Structures are given as C-alpha cells and as structure tokens.
Amino acid sequence: MPKTFFSRIGASHILTRPSLASVAAIGIALAVTIAAGIFAEVQNRSVHLQSARANVAEQLGIVRARLEGNINSNLQLVRGLVALIATQPDIDQDQFGRISSGLIGNHSQLRNVAGAPDLVVRLMYPMTGNEKAIGLDYRKNEQQRDAALRAVNSGEMVLAGPVDLLQGGKGFVGRFPVFTENDDGTRRLWGLVAAVVDADRLYADSGLLDAALPVEIAIMGRDATMADKSVFFGDENILSQNPVLSEVVLPTGRWRIAAIPRGGWSAMPDNAWKVRLLMLAGGLLVLLPIFIAGQLYDQRRGHIRELRRRQVQMEGLSQRLKLALDTSKIGIWELNLDTGVLTWDSRMRELYDIPEWRDTSQYDVWSECLHP
C-alpha cells in the first residue's frame, strides 16, 4: 500500500515590533497617569497646607482670646479705681493702698498701680519695690511723657508697652486720665492712674510660654499701634514664613499676632508616600492592561501577516501540484488509517473505471478494483 506523508502548519510565537498604535496608546495612558499623579500630589499638599493652617488658626485663636481677655480684665479692674478717685479726689495713700490691694492678686497680672495727681506720682501700691517711681513727673520724663500727654489730651486710657520698668523687668502700662467735676459742671483734670501689667505673667497666663504649645507666635504693634511693625514678642522671622495672622483687640488700639507651626510649615504631608503608592498602583492598573492589550494586538497582527504569507505559499504549491497532476495524468487517493475512510479524486475514479455516483469512501471499493 502506498504511503502518504502530510505536513501540518502549527501556530508559532511570532515576535513583532510594537505598532505605532500600541506605542501611542501606552504613551497617552502614561501621560494621563503622570498628570493625574502630579495633580493628586498638588491637591494632597494643598489639603495638607489648608489643614495645617486651620490647626494653627485654631491654636492662635485660643491664645489670642486668652491674651485679649487677660489684658481687658486687668484694665477693667483699674477702671473701678479710676471711678472712685473721680468721686474722691482727696484720696490718700492708705485708702489708695487698701483699694488697690484688692485689685492686685493671683487673679490678675497687675504688678502695681500708681496715682499721679497733677501728673506727679504720689500714690503707689505696693510701695515695696516701687519707691523709685514716687515723685516721677510725667511732664518731665522723656520716656513716658508722650504716652501720658496722649492719654490726657484724648481723655481715654492709653496702653503703652512693653516698656522697661524702673523696678526691673518689662510691663505694659495703662494710663487712665482722671477727671473731676466742678460745681459748674465742667471737668477738671485730677491726674493719671497708671497700672502696670507684668509682661511675663501676661504671656505665661495666656499660654504663650507653654512649652507644649504647637505653634510659634510673634506679636507686633508696640503701644497698641498697628502702624508699628516691630515685633515685641517672639521671633520676627515668623513674619516672613507666610504666618496665620490675627488681631488682639485692646481698649485703645490693637496688636497684630502671627503664628506658624512649631518648627515651620511642613511641605510634605504625613500621608505623602501612601498617596504616591496608591497612585503608582492605580497607574499600573491602567497601564498594564493597555500594555498587555497592545502586545496581544501586535501578536494578532503578526499572526495574520504570517497566515497570509503561508496562504500565498500554499496557493502557489497547490497550483504547482495541480499542474503536475494534470501533466502526469496520475490520480490521488488518501486513506485515514484510524477511521478507514478512503478519499479518491476524479482521476482515480477514471483510472479504476468507477462511476461518479458510486461511493468510494470505503477501503473495500479499492481492494475490489485490484487485479485478482
């Protein structure tokens, strides 16, 4: 029995260069991913800065409220003494001391209270430690004259400071003009009542000196004048670090108060790397499927090109085979050894003189046609 041999075209892995479409798709996806990452980074930092500024503003508001409340409460205590002197202008040292002793205590930051009839200090509480201030004439003292005359001319309390005190240390001096009423209803200047608020106690009781305070604070506006830009508490470098600003409202004037986080602003959010890793994971989830799809697309195109090339080759072989068969006048038959199915072409039917209508799919048909 003649033997026949067959060759079978199998699928093979075809390596192709990435197509322009795949490269473009990956490039666009990569650009979008990078842009989204940059946007997320900027947004994360913006949210972090806003949150940090909100926290600083909250802490600053607490300190500002304490500072404002302490200053105003101290000065309000002295207003009662001023009202009493206006009705009893002949007050002496003993009376002045008894009344003032109730004002100065652990509940306030008042350091001393002085009375200056005719603008000369003659009344003082406590006297101990403040003896140097007795006899001070505000009109002749260059350091205190302007503030004293400003209080007299305006008829309102004037807060000065912080100033270096004769007794040592620093303090804020509130000067209250005291007027008495004449019989004809006109007002006459009695003098001044000066109250010294201890600066260190004020800062400490307002929380400015608390080591656990999470912000750094600077205060400016000496003598409660907003036009004065000099810093009298804290580091002036705070003003150049984009601080959170607020104002301390005083009975006459204002202080400007600025705050930044302790150690300065942090440009790097605590969750920066977490966000970056999430963006990286998201980018991979976007790029990887596009890359794989591009590879599959390129492989499919490569397979299609290879199949077309082999189809052309097969068609050429078929044409040559047909030409050879037609020329040689031979026939072709094919037997499936597993199923026993026999296939003949028309030339084989002609050679064996088998009509077209007869079934030639069985082996017996061929064996019967052989010579005995």
Rank of each mutant, 00 (worst) to 15 (best):
P2L: 09
S7C: 09
S12K: 12
I14W: 02
I26W: 02
E41N: 13
Q43K: 09
S51T: 12
E58S: 07
L77Q: 12
V78I: 15
L81F: 03
V82A: 11
I85S: 03
I85V: 14
D92G: 11
L110S: 04
M124Q: 10
T128K: 11
L136G: 04
E142V: 07
A148E: 01
R150Y: 04
V158M: 11
V158W: 05
L159S: 08
D164N: 10
G168V: 01
K170L: 10
G171W: 04
G171C: 07
G174E: 04
P177V: 08
P177F: 07
V178Q: 08
F179D: 10
F179Q: 15
T180P: 09
D183A: 14
A195L: 06
V197N: 10
Y203W: 08
L213M: 10
P214I: 06
E216S: 08
A218W: 01
M220R: 12
G221R: 01
A224T: 06
F233P: 05
L239P: 01
V244K: 00
V248H: 05
R254K: 10
P261G: 01
G263S: 02
W265A: 00
N271H: 12
L277M: 11
P289F: 01
L296W: 14
Y297W: 14
Q299H: 15
Q299Y: 15
G302W: 02
M314H: 13
Q319V: 15
L321R: 08
L325C: 00
S328A: 13
I330V: 13
L335K: 10
N336D: 15
L337Q: 15
D338C: 06
W344T: 01
E350Q: 15
Y352R: 10
E356V: 14
W357D: 15
R358I: 15
W366G: 01
